[in-house]
Amino acid sequence: MLDARSGPPLTALITGAAAGIGAAFARALAREGYRLVLVDRNEELLRASAGSLGVECELVVADLTVEADVARVEEWCGRVDLLVNNAGFGHRREFLETPVAEEVAMCRLQTEVVLRLTMAALPGMAGRGRGSVVNTASVLGFFPSSTYSATKSWVVNFSLAAARSVRPSNVDVMALCPGFTRTDFHDSARMDMSGIPKRLWLDADFLVAKALRDLRKGKALSVPGWQYKVIVACGRAVPLGLLQRVLTWTGKGSLAAREG
């Protein structure tokens, strides 16, 4: 990861930047001296978030489930030094109760848009011999629990493959896998999270600090929080049949998203 505090000014583009993990990335990168391009569909919230940073930001109001808006943001990506693909959402309904159009919109946002923006950014970064991409995945990407988890599994695998491909060009790609994170993600999806133990919750600023640390170390996969490192490691070791029974028993198979 490039250091914006030395050398020429660097630019970071963050999607889903108005709140939650995206806003935490904006705060951290503003402190590091990055010029920020902040993308979100909620203009009012985006302006309020940007106004609290104390730095000049370029604001792009865009709904990344809309083709014209995706194309507009793609044009920006060729000029940035750091891309954070963070926009996403989940469903609170059971799998068969969720309208297929909503599932398709989620899949498009969390797979196609990640692919397109990453592919729009990487050629310029490779040509300059520097740059980084962070794709927000999820701890749920390691568990077969929902369409949401399937999209996040795709993000993990795509990011790892891309990281391997561009490493000779001195460009980094990293999948960030949050666990339960204190944001407005669950409220916006109307999910009841009251039963989640306090020790499983992470602070968004802590999460982002750990992610940027891992990015600087050249890691292609970041799982912040010791508890989630253990969960992911154990999940990979458990036979699929047993894992599916555990997910069903705990109810995690019925939720489309559990973290922010």
Rank of each mutant, 00 (worst) to 15 (best):
V223N: 06
R199C: 01
P99M: 08
A23C: 06
V39K: 03
D214H: 10
R130Q: 13
K217H: 13
R27Y: 05
G90N: 07
V208C: 03
G90I: 03
A121F: 09
A161C: 11
S138W: 05
V171P: 12
L64I: 05
V232Q: 08
L115N: 14
H91V: 06
G253S: 13
R41M: 08
V55E: 02
S145C: 12
V113K: 01
A48D: 14
D81F: 08
L36W: 04
P197G: 09
R213Y: 10
W76P: 00
P239W: 05
L255M: 15
L82E: 04
I14Y: 11
R92K: 14
T98H: 05
P9A: 14
K219P: 00
L46V: 04
C107R: 15
S222E: 02
L83Y: 07
N86C: 11
S52T: 09
L117I: 06
D63A: 14
A137H: 05
A87E: 01
L247T: 02
V66K: 14
Y228R: 08
S145E: 06
L64G: 02
R164C: 12
A137N: 11
L13M: 10
A175F: 05
A137V: 01
I14G: 08
A87G: 06
A204S: 14
A220M: 10
N170D: 10
V84D: 14
L243D: 11
P99C: 06
A62P: 02
V100M: 11
V100S: 00
K219N: 13
L109H: 04
L96R: 00
E94K: 10
A211Q: 02
Q110K: 06
D40L: 03
V246M: 08
L176N: 06
P197M: 04
P168Q: 11
L59C: 02
W226R: 13
P178R: 01
K229Q: 15
A26D: 13
G20K: 14
R245W: 14
G218L: 10
V246G: 07
E56L: 10
N170I: 01
E56D: 15
S153D: 09
V114I: 13
G78T: 00
S146T: 02
P99G: 04
L53A: 04
L10V: 02
A220R: 10
L122M: 04
R35N: 03
A28M: 13
F142L: 08
G22F: 07
S169T: 05
S6K: 12
A17E: 09
A19P: 05
L2G: 14
S194T: 07
E58F: 00
L240I: 13
L215V: 01
A161S: 15
G51D: 00
L64W: 09
G90V: 12
P8M: 12
N42V: 06
G33S: 07
M174K: 03
G16L: 10
L240D: 13
V73R: 00
K219I: 00
F142H: 15
C177V: 01
A237K: 12
T15C: 09
L243V: 02
L59I: 02
G33L: 08
V114S: 08
P239E: 07
A211S: 11
E112P: 00
G90H: 08
D63T: 10
L207V: 00
V60L: 13
E32V: 06
D192H: 07
T181Y: 09
G124N: 08
G129N: 05
S149W: 08
L255G: 15
K229N: 12
H186Q: 15
A211L: 09
V66A: 14
V230N: 05
L53W: 05
E103Y: 12
